[in-house]
Simulated assay, not measured.
Amino acid sequence: MLRTSTRRRITSRLLALAVLPAVVLPALAGCSDPGASAAGTTPETTAARNGVVYNTSPEQNRIRAEKNAALAAKVPAAVGKDGKLTVATTAGSIPLSFHATDDKTPIGVELDLAQLVADKLGLELDVQVTSWENWPLKTQSGDFEAVFSNVGINAARVKLFDFSSYRAAYMGFEAKKTSSYSVNGADDISGLTVSVGSGTNQEKILLAWNKELEAKGKAPATLQYYSSDADTILALSSGRTDLNIAPYPSVTYRENTRDDLKVVGKVNAGWPSETLVAATTLKGNGLAPAITDALNSAIKDGSYGKVLDRWGLSEEALPESKTVTEATFGAAQTGAAK
Rank of each mutant, 00 (worst) to 15 (best):
L2P: 00
R3I: 13
R7W: 13
I10M: 11
P21A: 14
P26N: 12
A27V: 15
A27N: 10
L28Q: 10
A29G: 15
C31P: 01
S32Q: 13
D33A: 11
D33R: 00
P34D: 02
P34T: 03
P34G: 01
T42V: 11
E44D: 11
Y54W: 10
N55W: 03
N61T: 10
A70M: 10
P76C: 02
V79L: 07
V79K: 00
G80A: 08
V87M: 07
S97R: 01
F98P: 01
T101I: 09
T101S: 08
D103K: 06
V117W: 05
D119E: 05
L123Y: 03
E124Q: 10
V127K: 07
V129D: 00
T130H: 07
S131N: 12
Q140I: 12
S141F: 09
G142C: 06
F148R: 02
I153G: 04
S165I: 07
S165W: 04
A168P: 05
A168V: 11
A169D: 15
I189P: 05
L192K: 15
S195C: 07
G197P: 05
G199R: 07
Q202F: 04
W209R: 05
A215Y: 14
K216R: 14
G217I: 04
D231Q: 12
T232W: 04
I233K: 01
R240F: 08
N244C: 06
I245K: 03
A246M: 02
P247Y: 01
Y248G: 04
D259G: 09
N268L: 13
N268Q: 13
G270R: 07
A278C: 14
T280L: 06
G284D: 11
A290E: 03
S297P: 01
K300P: 00
W311I: 06
S314W: 00
A317S: 13
T323I: 04
V324N: 12
E326G: 14
G330E: 14
